[in-house]
Design a protein around this nucleic acid. Structure first.
Lengths: 298, 298
DNA sequence: CGACCATGATACCGATCCGGTATGAATTGA
DNA sequence: TCAATTCATACCGGATCGGTATCATGGTCG
């Protein structure tokens, strides 16, 4: 059967048109080259070159085969290089799920650094609601997720990448606007706007935990999935909201932000499946400065 | 060294994810398959699949390699098919030089038939002046030429493909327009328009030969390379012309065509170099109905 | 014109590689 | 715990590879 070595031999011969010199270039002697090229012609059933006493010339079929063989050998070698790149996580695909909030904080810088370091990896970014993310990662729909810490989940490893305090978003004419810092106790009875529990449980938990020491549960008036929508509704004076500090970057006309006393912190983590073998994931975790030791553990 | 067989083995294995069934498909037994895939992994330095007790799964690198290997094997096989096509003249290039007159007679039908029969051959058509054509063919700049018969040329084979009479092109108010047929003797002293000797020697020879029996040489008033230009000049009543009958297809307002008594015939031939090994040429000559016997001779 | 040289084909040899058979190790399922 | 499945390993005979030696052919040069 015709194989890739015979193609390499033929290419060398076609480029030198001289058995001896071609053999030299291939680091073999002339007889094996003659034999292999002869066998190649026999197996193809086609004469590839005319042997004259002083020179050899390609037939038309030989010219065709030279072009094709060059292309085949080149993609063959490329395939062998690619598989090594893929094994080192430098080539392939990496799918990342993230909650919208991450798009305003850790995701841009992280994605930028990763894509600069691994330009050949096709990065697939997809926004999902925080509560579904850990399930998606465990199920293998994403290689990694960026979300509020979901707490321990079986088959999921996490590592913190961002920690920020919550602050208070209020209408500029709200009574609290006069203060620089608002305490938790003041929130009792205040109508809050927040994300639904099933969308961002961690965030809701943090709000509840903040109020609990003062003996009351927060009053949720409105629920909406996106933090941006929350800010808009605060702008309409439909309530106030506890939001991550980074939301203050959204300069909105009617909304002001105030610090919370003993502000609760909310953490974003990278989440991944430790069994996930995608080398691109290991590289991504390295870029995210996840310690090697935690990569393999639950 | 990695070779194409190992790629084929890996593809079969990756598609079945089962050593036994993959070996069956490859018509070998399981142990050689295990050994070859193991050797492939070792040579690449990359683990391509995870062996579990009941099933095997591709690693990320393995998936990458599967895609690449499929593409390599496919172009490898294509190269082997292509060289056989090229050898039969069904794939490759065919360059044809032709004089402009042929574009009005034999070339369109011939080129059409050939290209329909051999759609994969890239046909390069180029118009040149008749006198340079035989030289171009002998020098290998064209595989074939279509021109007025240049007579015997060393290293050139020819075969007639078209024969037509010359006729007389005259202005519609010319005195000859009243006759249906004009004799050679009447041409004595008539100002003729013709192509220069060095452009179309055969055509000029035919005109001279037509007059010689009547004891005079034709009077050439104007010389111009293209037959179309000749017709235009006849339309301007600058002279009359002996042109191939097929030129009468050019319906021009002021020009009429008249038959010549004992009209001289002019022959178009296909010309090629018998040593030319391009299989596409053989196929072209076959389409042109050149007998096999004349293909190889001088 | 003949000796010489360059070139590629062929014959033969030892080493390597291939695929086949036999068998072992590990895991799963009854 | 035993049987079955699955893949890896050991070993064998045959095929193939590349190397050396040599031959046939056809230019080249004195």
């Amino acid at each position: 059967m015709v194989d890739i070595r015979q193609m390499r031999y033929f290419i060398a011969l076609a480029e030198t048109l001289h058995f001896g010199r071609a053999a030299d270039r291939l680091n073999i002697t002339q007889p094996p080259l003659s034999r292999q090229v002869g066998a190649l012609e026999r197996e193809l059933g086609v004469k590839l070159l005319e042997r004259h006493s002083r020179r050899a010339v390609l037939t038309a079929a030989g010219q065709q085969f030279l072009e094709d063989a060059r292309s085949v050998v080149s993609s063959f070698d490329q395939a062998c290089r690619n598989v090594r790149l893929a094994d080192r996580g430098e080539l392939g695909e990496l799918s990342i799920g993230f909650m919208m909030h991450a798009a305003h904080t850790v995701l841009p810088g992280l994605a930028k650094r990763y894509m600069a370091a691994f330009p050949l990896v096709e990065v697939k970014l997809r926004e999902v609601i925080p509560s579904s993310l850990s399930g998606d990662v465990v199920a293998g729909r994403f290689d990694a997720g960026i979300t509020f810490s979901p707490g321990p989940v079986r088959g999921l490893a996490t590592y913190p990448v961002h920690r920020e305090n919550l602050c208070l978003a209020i209408h500029r004419e709200h009574e609290f606007a006069a203060h620089d810092v608002i305490g938790a106790a003041a929130l009792e009875g205040q109508p809050l706007i927040a994300t639904p529990v099933d969308v961002a449980p961690t965030l809701r938990q943090a709000i509840s935990d903040y109020c609990r020491p003062y003996g009351f549960e927060p009053t949720i008036r409105l629920e909406t999935q996106l933090q941006q929508t929350i800010i808009s509704l605060v702008g309409e004076n439909l309530g106030i909201a506890l939001v991550p500090q980074s939301m203050a970057k959204l300069q909105t006309r009617d909304v002001v932000f105030r610090a919370l006393e003993d502000a609760p912190a909310i953490e974003q983590v990278i989440a991944w499946r430790p069994q996930n073998l995608n080398p691109a994931l290991r590289a991504f975790l390295t870029v995210a400065e996840v310690p090697k030791a935690t990569m393999q553990l639950d």
